[in-house]
Amino acid sequence: MSHGGGASSAGVEVNLIPMIDIVIQLITFFLMLVNFDEANQDERVRLPVADLAKPTAMDVEEMLIWNLNDDGRVKVLGEPIDVDDNAFRQAVAREAAAAERSMKKAGREPKTVAGRPQLWTTIMIRADRDVEYAKVQHLIKICQDYGFYKFALRATPERK
């Protein structure tokens, strides 16, 4: 009985193996292209255009990205805070303290220049092209006040 039932159910057999091969290749392709870097990038920030800003590898030990949008707010832990706000200064202070701790943990005693420890973190500034220069300048000034001195100004080589 069971023999007969089995034979009737096995009608037309579709060979699924080639399809599965292709689909798994597609998955692998998309998996490879997942860019985890973009978690730090705010898509609403439209970067300024500069053809010399090539995506070259920079010698960066530690990196901290500040996304500055067109009305002068920086996203700190998902919350936009005005650069001129005291809360932003506190956030930079926290980051500076963390950077100093991690430098010490790595056995690198930060040098002190003008009473400020020189931190190894590079501040990556992703500022909107329409933001006022004063806001960018203020952001840099606050970071300098807490000992950051390596900065990078992000731009895109092509117009979007």
């Binding site: 292209l33 500069a50 995506p55 990556m124 390596k150 900065f151 992000r154 731009a155 895109t156």
Partner: peptide, 26 residues
């Protein structure tokens, strides 16, 4: 899985930077 990756796919955006070293002058 395939649909998930297709929907979350975003081509890598070209971004470059100008490296700046800004020590405050003592």
């Amino acid at each position: 899985l395939l649909i998930f990756f297709i929907l979350t796919f975003k081509p890598v955006t070209d971004e470059g930077q100008f490296g700046v070293n800004m020590s405050a002058l003592p």
